[in-house]
Amino acid sequence: NQASVVANTLIPINTALTLVMMRSEVVTPVGIPAEDIPRLVSMTVNRAVPLGTTLMPDMVKGYA
């Protein structure tokens, strides 16, 4: 099973992502692959992402 990116904290809308905000976890449904974490750093989220939420491609500006 592939690990996905999961919010390690509440990420407010329009926040630039940092490494400490994200962790990898095997979850269903599958979200952004964990190997993309380095690429996500400094990208911003377009909605509030609660703790434990899987990051989906449409949640990160410029990812999809």
Rank of each mutant, 00 (worst) to 15 (best):
L55Y: 00
I32K: 00
M21N: 13
P57R: 09
L51P: 12
I11C: 02
A16I: 11
A64I: 12
L40Y: 02
V49L: 11
P57V: 06
R39I: 11
V27N: 03
L55G: 01
R47C: 07
V26A: 11
L17N: 00
L55N: 01
A3R: 05
T9N: 09
V27E: 02
M59A: 08
L55A: 01
N8R: 09
Q2R: 04
N8V: 10
V6M: 05
R47H: 14
E25A: 14
M22D: 00
G62S: 10
K61N: 14
T28W: 04
A34G: 12
T44L: 13
A64M: 15
I32L: 08
V60Q: 01
V49Q: 02
T53S: 14
M56Y: 10
M59T: 06
P50Y: 10
S4Y: 03
R23H: 05
M43R: 07
A3C: 08
L10E: 09
M22A: 00
T15V: 11
E25S: 11
K61R: 15
N46Y: 11
M21A: 05
M21K: 04
M56D: 05
R47I: 07
T54A: 06
R47M: 11
I32F: 03
Q2K: 05
L55C: 01
A34V: 09
G62Q: 10
I13H: 11
S4V: 01
I32Q: 00
N46S: 15
P50K: 12
R23Y: 04
M59S: 05
M56P: 01
A64F: 04
A48L: 14
V49Y: 02
T54V: 14
A64Q: 14
V6G: 01
P38G: 11
A64S: 13
V30Q: 14
K61L: 09
V20I: 12
M21P: 00
L55R: 01
G31Y: 02
V27G: 03
V5L: 03
V27Q: 04
S4H: 00
L17W: 02
L17I: 13
R47E: 06
N46K: 10
T15Y: 11
A16F: 14
T28N: 10
V41H: 04
A16P: 11
S24Q: 13
N1W: 10
V60F: 07
A34H: 07
S42H: 11
M43W: 07
G62I: 04
R39L: 09
V45H: 00
A16T: 15
M21T: 03
V26M: 09
I32G: 00
V27S: 04
P38N: 10
P38A: 13
D58Y: 13
L19W: 13
V41N: 03
V5D: 01
G31C: 03
E25R: 06
G31E: 01
V49F: 03
Q2N: 13
S24C: 06
L19P: 09
V27C: 05
D58E: 13
S24I: 06
Q2H: 10
V20A: 11
S4M: 02
E35N: 13
D36I: 06
P38R: 09
T53Q: 11
A34P: 07
I32E: 01
L17H: 00
P33Q: 09
Y63G: 03
S4C: 04
P29L: 06
A16S: 13
L19D: 04
L17P: 02
I13Q: 09
M43E: 04
T54Y: 02
A7R: 02
V49M: 05
G52C: 04
S42Y: 10
M43A: 07
G52I: 03
N14H: 15
V20T: 14
T53C: 11
A16G: 09
V27Y: 02
T9K: 13
L10Y: 12
T53G: 13
Q2T: 12
N1D: 15
V45Q: 01
N8W: 04
A34Y: 14
P38K: 11
I13E: 15
I37Y: 03
E35W: 08
M43N: 04
